[in-house]
Structure formats: C-alpha cells, structure tokens
Design a protein around this nucleic acid. Structure first.
Lengths: 316, 316
DNA sequence: CGTAGGCGTTAGAAAATCTTACACGAACTC
DNA sequence: GAGTTCGTGTAAGATTTTCTAACGCCTACG
C-alpha cells in the first residue's frame, strides 16, 4: 500500500482546509463548489475517515486532518519550488504571438499591460505578420488570425467574432455635409480596407455595403485604399473620409471619441478572429495562461464594444 | 501563474527520473510504458522544455530536471508522510469482510496470510455470515457472495466462477467397490450440500447430476445432508461417501490429496462468487488493495485448480 | 542479419473530473 | 417569521484526462 492518495484530491483538501471553506477553495482552484465537495468526499472515502467535522455553523478539521495539514503545505511548497526550477529553464516564460498587424496595433498591444499585470513572469513577444506563419519554422507559440477558422493540422478556437461598421471623425458630422443617412456619403471620400484577408469575402467592401443600404447613386470604388485595416482607421481619424471598419480595430478610437459611427448599423463579418496553435502548445503553461487572458479580454470587448456601441451613442 | 503542473505528471516524472527508465517507472506505477511516455511529454510541453535528453544509448536528465529532482523527492516524501497521518486515524487499516462460511474456511482463510505479507498494515476481520449482510447496519466493508450477481444498489464484480464435481476420499477408490463410472456410486453413500444458496438453482443436486450422467438406478436422495458446503467436504474427507462439491471449496483438500475427483468431469455452476460493496467503499485504499489481491488469488485458483484438476491426475 | 528491449506515437477505451441542477439547512433581512 | 441568501451535499451527464493496445522505429546484442 505504498501508493499515494489521489494527488488532486490532496491539493483540493489543502486548499479547503486552509480556507475552511469549500466555496473559497473552489474559487481558488477555479472550479465549482460541487467539484470540491466531491474531491473531499473521495479523499475521505480513500482514507476511510472524515477530514472535516461539519458543525452547524462552521467547518472544522478533524485531528488527523489538522495534523497532516502543515506537512501537506510543505509538500506543495516543495512542488511549487520544483516546478519553478523546471519552468525557469524552459521557454515557458516567454511566448511569441503572431498577430495580424492591425489587430496587434489597435487591440492587442493596448491591453497587453493588463496581461503583464496578471502574469509578470511571462514575457510576450508580438510578431505582426501579414501572412499565416509556419509554426514549425518561425518558432511561434500562438497565432491570432482573422479568417474562416480553417487551419489544417492545428488547434483552433474562436476568439471573437467581427462586425463591420462605417466610422469617421466626429468633425465630419459637424461640417457642411453632416452624415445622417447613407446617401450623405456622397459628399465624403470613402476609405477602403484592402487588407489581403478581405479579398474574397468582401465584408468591408463599400460597393456591396452601399448596395445593401439601397444607395445606388454613389460610386463604391471612389476614395483611398489601404492595405492594412489600421491604416484605414488612421485615415478616418485624420478626417480623410468615412471608413468601413472592423469593429475590433476601430473600437479603441471609437471609445476615445476620435471616431464615431454615424449610422446605428453594424453588419456581421463572415470572418472571425481565431486562436491557432499546434496541439503540443496547448499544454504549455504560459500559452494556456495567455489564451485564457485573451478569451477574457475578447469577452469584455464583445460585451462593452460591439453590441452597445457606446461611442456611437455618445456621438448622437 | 501560481498554478502547479499536473501533479500526476510530476509523480510519473519523479519515478522515471529516479529509474532513468520509462519502462521501470511504468512497472512501479502499474501502468504501461506508453502512459509514462505521454505523461512525460505532457509535462515537457507544460514547462516548455525537455526533461530528458534522449541519447542513443541511455536516458539522461536535463539540468533543470536534475536540479528539481531532489526537491520533488522531498515533496513526495512529505505527501507520503501526510497521507500516513491521514490513514492512521482512519479505519483504512482495518477492513471487515463478510464471506460465506464455507468459502471463508476453505478458501479465504488459508490464503489470508499472503495478503498480510503484502499489506502488513491492513488488518482483516473475517465475518462468516450465512445471510447477505446489510452494509448500513453491520459495518461491513466488503462481502464475497455466492449467487447470481444481482445485488441492488451495490457495486458488484465477478470474483470467480464456480464449478461442481464429485469428490471423495482416495481410500474409496481402493476398497471393494472402486469408483470408475457413475454407476459405481451405487455402492457408496452420497453426501448432499444443502447450503441455502443452493435451494433453487440445484447445481449441487445429486439427483439431477445422476440424471445428466445417464444413471437411473441410483436414488439421488440417499445419504447425509449438510447445511454448509464445508461440512460436506469434511464428511467426504472422512470417507463418509461421495460429495458433489463446489470446486473452490474442495480445492485445498484436492491439492492436499485428502480428496480425489473420481471422474474427469466438472459441470459449471449457475452461481459465481461476487465481490459486493457500497459504492463509497470502492475508493477506500485498504478495500482497493484487498480487492486487488482477491482478484489475483482468484485468477491463480482458476488457473491452477479448476481446468487442470491436478489432484485428480495425481489419483489416477 | 535477426531478434529483443526500450522509447514514441496513435486511436480508441476507460476512468477521472467537472458542471449543471437541484435539495437542504442555517443565517440574515425586512 | 417568511422570504432570501449563502454554503454544503448529491446525482446525472458531459468533458477531459489518462490509460491501453498496437504499432513503428531505433539500438544493441547475439
């Protein structure tokens, strides 16, 4: 019987015993209280006696549990120490993320310090690539890609969906030709997003947008064209015209008031942002932490930015 | 990132590093080498670097792995110590097993010391009960029951199958009326197993056995009857006649030469021996160890005892 | 060379773990 | 003191992890 009890149950027990609360332990371990309860029960069954005395008002440790707790703590401290040693040498303290340049500039980089706050020991290298990278060649840990989600041989998960909306500088709303309906666009230059990933799907194509909006007297090809989404945004911020923008890219400038959305209208894009990486990276501690953070940021972006369009409300 | 690496992977790594061999670690942990390989790979992915240098001839630890090893060892030592404390108070050092009296006397008790050799710290209490016990009432951890395997609300697993064969003292073969064919039974008393679990299934019913053997001139009801299988065996050993015996009960006496099987014939019983216990006991360390041992003994019994009938060979 | 032993990989099976959903009791509120 | 909230306990089902089985590959050794 030299076999150890289930190790995860011990970890759960250590946490629950430290907090004297299943719920707090559940928070700490990022699981539900029910999971904690079951782990504790499993351990109690294994050792054949109870670990906690469940009194009316509080949770108390049994003598055996009490006695074992300091030793358990030491054990987990040692495990942590050992794990630090293992991680120190590995590259799990630095990850390289390949991102489309516009998303990097307008979405990722501005919030990167929040990740650094959470995980100071992980260093993030941002590689802004136009093309999809070859993981085998370029030593990339993780890529954020805008597309249809088809990346053969790699693990893919949806990060966030994208939608398209016309944006311009707030100054354009106050000039001689305020923009109220799509027809008013006739008096302003159109700014075109010619980034390569748009070529076939045409979500950010002014001609199609105008047609869908029922406007036939405006030439959809008129105006300047840029090969990166962020440049279109910069042009719009500079008051050069009206851009058909990806919301994630425009979001920061909308929130800062440098851009406004003249119409209460967003159309979903056929493409979305996906996290892509080789299967083996999915177990990497740093990659895991970074992905988790990205998902949280994306959820926050979606909740705050897309559905409610706060900047647009402010402008009207 | 205060989260620990997968704990089981660490355990596997510790073992593999200590042995410098995946295969030996696999043996120690009672898993296949493939499982070890995968756990190590998972840990390597997690920390982002290799743990072993795979050279042509040998497995070598990387520096980081080397450095972490002593600390890991300490950690697992502490875990073991903590687990000992937890187990010491619990009743996981004593288990109570309810067994049918005959199987207890003729099968379980004779080999119990082998379990004690393996797990000296576990004390086994044998409760020989005629009836199926109520786990809730009688504080039984585990029951071995002879039956059809239907025990509602409990976890059941097959321990071993039973078969039936006629047995008698070797002296009966050498007397005035040696037993060579079923017809020779006419000159000997029949010994009947009247244990309660036989009542409806009648596997050890002489009348049916004789009928199946094509013998019609012998009264199948003739002879003494006992309410426990082991008593039938004792009577047979004492030369009181020929018993229709359960092989597991007769096995020890057959192997010792105190009994022989006059015919090269065993018939399967409708009933088998089952391990029965409440679901919660299945996690108990001592119960788990005892069950594992029982299965091994049962497998050995089956291989050595039933198919080859060694005692019978010896007698002929 | 052929065979044996050990590592590595895969797909699929098995087991563990978690979540969801709900029950229950105690403490807290109004 | 009835309704709410908070925390534990349980069951069923889904998910994830882990294992086995069955290979391929390489090295060493006869």
């Amino acid at each position: 019987m030299k076999s150890l009890p289930p190790l995860n149950a011990l970890k759960v027990f250590e946490s629950a015993a430290r907090h004297l609360s299943f719920t707090k332990a559940a928070d700490e371990l990022h699981v539900t209280p029910g999971a904690v309860s079951q782990q504790i029960k499993a351990l109690e069954d294994y050792i054949g006696s109870r670990l906690f005395r469940r009194t009316k008002r509080a949770l108390l440790l049994t003598d055996a549990a009490q006695a074992s707790l300091p030793i358990l703590r030491e054990a987990f401290d040692k495990l942590e120490e050992a794990s630090r040693i293992l991680m120190a040498r590995g590259d799990s303290r630095r990850i390289t993320v390949s991102v489309a340049p516009s998303l990097a500039a307008k979405w990722l980089v501005p919030r990167l310090d929040r990740f650094h706050e959470r995980c100071p020991e992980v260093e993030v290298w941002v590689s802004a690539d136009m093309e999809v990278v070859d993981f085998a060649v370029d030593d990339i840990d993780l890529a954020i890609r805008y597309g249809a989600g088809r990346y053969a041989g790699l693990e893919v998960e949806l990060l966030m969906e994208e939608s398209i909306l016309p944006v311009c500088s707030p100054r354009l709303l106050q000039g001689d030709h305020p923009i109220r309906t799509p027809h008013d666009l006739a008096h302003h230059p159109l700014l075109h997003d010619g980034s390569p990933d748009q070529e076939d799907m045409a979500s950010t194509n002014w001609a199609m947008w105008l047609k869908a909006a029922g406007v036939s007297d405006i030439d959809g090809k008129r105006g300047a064209k840029f090969n990166q989404s962020s440049l279109v945004i910069e042009a719009a911020v500079a008051g050069k015209g009206v851009a058909l923008a990806k919301s994630a890219i425009a979001l920061a400038d909308l929130e800062a008031g440098r851009l406004v959305a003249p119409f209460d209208l967003t159309t979903p894009s056929n493409f979305s942002y996906y996290l892509v990486h080789p299967a083996s990276k999915s177990r990497n501690a740093a990659v895991k932490a970074f992905k988790k953070w990205l998902h949280e940021e994306a959820a926050a972006t979606g909740a705050a930015g897309l559905p409610r369009q706060p900047a647009q409300e402010a402008a009207q």
